[in-house]
Design a protein around this nucleic acid. Structure first.
Lengths: 335, 335
DNA sequence: CCATCAAGCTAACACGCGTTAGTGTGCACT
DNA sequence: AGTGCACACTAACGCGTGTTAGCTTGATGG
């Protein structure tokens, strides 16, 4: 290996100790505010000055090695493409919030096998996966991973997300449509394999929400993402459900697909069909007509995820989940 | 959290050594294929079997501690919100490609100060930032970070991205519009602070491209992201540039904003104004009319980034950048 | 028969940190 | 004067690797 002329060596706690004229142990005590130790004011100041002078920062690796657990959280991304959806915003917030509690986030794409290589060599403090088989989760725990949590799995986190979050969305969507006088609803979704995972769950929650309000059972409306196809499907759907006057879309794309099909058929929103989408985006505001959307505050979800994982890592009792996912309506003109 | 009866300790190389009946050093020699050491076939097999039996994976932290540098690449995210744009797709690919060459990607949000804490405590092998002041980059190199690269900076990577990529986009956009008979062009963009960073560069490249073809100088068209505002600005812009018949939009949102303003004014695309957007998305396909878009192959950019950083980390000569960013046109009806 | 050497393996160190056990003060109380 | 004790600090260990120097053994050449 080639050595640079300036050794490019980072400052260690030994350097700080040397400069401050104390032992390395004292440096550690000062910088970590070890409660069982008392340090004289003079020494404390000298150490802090030296640390600042050398712009010292402890090595995360060495710390992890000693404590037996790292400070990195491994995030397995959902299937390709989802980072550009609302998940992307949550991930951005996660990276900030994790670093605020001293954890750093390693992201890795989801492959067929949960990449034993990755999670076992990085020794993450926790793993946050999209969906996780129970035996994989168990294997991770065996290898020393403190917190294993999945978005759509059967653990607490998964239940909160697919429970409260999805229910909040469905509730606010239905509420908004009912307020406008629509009782016979549909559930619009785009994409190849319909009704799997989140979409399946959302649809069920939607049905439950309607049942609770005494409304007729909502019907599924799986749309292709091209104008002509959307129009065809929409027309057939209307014939089969003549009373339907409102649509809950799964996301922005589904809402746009409905709108697009309607335009081709000469229908007007909300007169011929009212639409409430999910996840507000610029595209929704610029649609014709501008789309009424339901959004969840990403901050609520991000904070809860970080709180749960942080508690797991520190062996503290898990915080109780928030009782709202922060759903709110962005009223425009499609309903 | 529930504690298992087995302490959930991961296997170490000492465990493998014990099971194989050899020393820890031998285990290391076998597993790393140390070229200067010869190992008998029998011992090699016993070690490998033991490693498999215990599903041993070396601790990344301990390895990093010894080698003085980790295998993690620190990615500083662009300003909030960009993960949901085309950057998100590139980031997804990066996470896969990095792991294929044995690097793992740590992502962190960009804060005001480049968070000395993060990059100095994780000891990343490389840092990939959005925009980076030269003194910050220098400080990172001083601390042992091998590769410091920024998307929009003045290093090789930045020049490739803001050079070739942006030029490819501008070239294909102009080419498409010229082919349809439009010569007097505009550059549409949304968002508060216009003409900064990438948008500024794109605009300049666009001007150069038009100049090279002998076309009149394109004019900027900064739009608000709401229907009424967009219409107003569009109308004023038309009065000031009566000959303009084609618009290069900066991204999907800008293209939708133009479309939205036109709709309010009763203009038809492409008859009254032709539009070419950037970064194909479902929203573009579902617009009215469906938008013609120019897209860059994210794979080309992701591969180049990984190749450059991998070379820097291994002290190998940097690969020459690809001479195309993989630009292609998705023809629909807006031009 | 002795010297040389390669093959195959192991003891021991360094990496940077947190932490436990211990050491030497100076002061208060009996 | 002797005991106890809080105070301020340090030596030394362990975490799991990669790596260097050295050690044994058997074979080979003179």
């Amino acid at each position: 290996m080639h050595r640079h002329r300036t050794p490019a060596r980072r400052a260690t706690s030994a350097d700080v100790a040397r400069l401050a004229g104390v032992s390395r142990t004292t440096v550690s005590f000062v910088l970590n505010d070890t409660p069982s130790q008392s340090i004289s004011a003079g020494t404390r100041r000298r150490v802090l000055d030296a640390a600042r002078e050398l712009s010292y920062a402890p090595s995360a690796e060495a710390r992890a090695l000693g404590r037996g657990r790292s400070t990195s959280v491994l995030l397995y991304l959902p299937p390709a493409g989802s980072l550009t959806e609302d998940i992307g915003v949550i991930v951005e917030r996660l990276s900030v919030l994790f670093s605020e509690v001293g954890l750093s986030m390693v992201i890795h794409a989801w492959t067929r096998r949960p990449a034993a290589q990755v999670w076992s060599s990085v020794t993450p403090a926790a793993v946050l996966a999209w969906d996780l088989a129970e035996d994989d989760a168990e294997r991770m725990r065996r290898s020393g991973v403190r917190g294993v949590v999945s978005w759509t799995g059967s653990d607490d986190m998964g239940r909160w997300i697919t429970g409260l979050r999805e229910r909040d969305i469905a509730r606010v969507q239905v509420q908004r449509l009912v307020a406008a006088g629509h009782t016979h609803l549909g559930y619009a979704i785009t994409g190849g394999e319909h009704m799997h995972g989140v979409s399946q769950w959302r649809f069920e929650v939607l049905q439950r929400e309607c049942a609770a309000r005494g409304l007729p059972r909502p019907s599924a409306l799986p749309l292709p993402a091209d104008p002509r196809g959307a129009a065809d499907v929409l027309l057939q759907w209307r014939e089969r459900h003549p009373g339907a006057s409102g649509v809950c879309a799964h996301d922005t794309t589904a809402a746009l697909a409905v709108l697009c099909g309607m335009r081709r058929l000469g229908w007007k929103a909300p007169a011929d069909l009212a639409i409430v989408g999910v996840n507000d985006s610029p595209a929704a505001a610029l649609a014709d007509p501008p789309l009424t959307m339901v959004a969840l505050d990403p901050e609520v979800t991000a904070r809860h995820i970080v709180a749960v994982i942080n508690a797991l890592v520190r062996d503290e009792p898990a915080p109780s989940p928030p009782d709202t996912a922060g759903a709110f309506t962005v009223d425009r003109e499609s309903v």
